[in-house]
Simulated assay, not measured.
Amino acid sequence: MSNLFSDAVPLPAEPDPAPVLAYSVNVPVPPDHAYAGFVDNIHLWWPAQNLSIYGVGSFFDLEDGTLVETSPENEEAVWADVFGREDGCRLDLAWHHQLPGGTQTELSLRFDRIPDEGTLVSLTHGGWSTAQQSHTERSLYEAFWPTALEKFKRFMGAIL
Rank of each mutant, 00 (worst) to 15 (best):
V25G: 02
L51Y: 06
G101E: 02
D32Y: 15
S129N: 09
S52F: 02
E106T: 08
M156F: 08
W79I: 02
G57K: 05
A22C: 09
E14Y: 01
I42Q: 15
E73I: 06
V78W: 01
Q98H: 07
A143V: 09
S139M: 09
A148F: 08
P146V: 09
A22I: 10
G37V: 07
T119R: 03
L51C: 14
L11I: 09
S139F: 07
T136L: 03
L140I: 04
G101V: 07
T70C: 10
L21D: 08
L160C: 09
H97D: 13
Y54V: 02
P100L: 01
L160H: 12
F5H: 08
G126F: 13
E75Y: 02
M156Q: 11
A34Y: 09
P15E: 03
S52D: 06
P31A: 01
T130M: 06
E75G: 14
P72L: 02
R90P: 05
Q98C: 00
D92W: 10
W145S: 12
N26Q: 15
E142Y: 08
Q104M: 03
P10Q: 07
H97S: 11
T105W: 04
P47C: 08
P146R: 09
E117K: 11
A131M: 13
T70D: 07
L4E: 12
A77H: 07
Q132C: 04
D16Q: 05
T124V: 07
E73P: 15
E76Y: 03
L123T: 01
R154D: 13
F144Y: 06
L123W: 14
E86F: 00
A8M: 11
N26S: 04
P47F: 05
V56R: 12
E150Y: 07
L160S: 06
G101A: 11
D32W: 13
P146H: 12
C89S: 13
P30V: 04
A18T: 06
E150M: 10
G126V: 07
E150T: 12
T147I: 15
D92T: 05
P115C: 10
S139T: 03
R85N: 03
G88W: 05
P100M: 01
G101R: 02
S58E: 10
A36N: 13
A13I: 10
H125Y: 11
W128Y: 07
D81P: 01
S139R: 13
G118C: 10
E106G: 04
G118T: 13
V29G: 00
H33A: 09
R154G: 15
N41W: 01
S134H: 07
T130I: 05
F60D: 00
P19Y: 08
D61Y: 11
G126R: 11
L140C: 11
H96Y: 12
A131T: 14
G88A: 08
L107K: 01
G127I: 04
Y54A: 03
H125W: 15
E142W: 01
Y23F: 10
N3K: 14
L11Y: 12
W79F: 01
G37H: 06
A8Q: 05
E137L: 06
P28F: 06
R90C: 12
E76G: 09
V78G: 05
Q104V: 09
E117H: 14
V20H: 14
H33R: 13
H43N: 11
W145R: 05
E14M: 02
D116V: 11
E117L: 12
A80W: 00
D116L: 15
D7P: 02
E63I: 00
Q104P: 14
S122P: 15
N50Y: 03
L11P: 05
H97E: 09
Y23R: 14
S58W: 00
P47L: 14
T147C: 06
F144E: 00
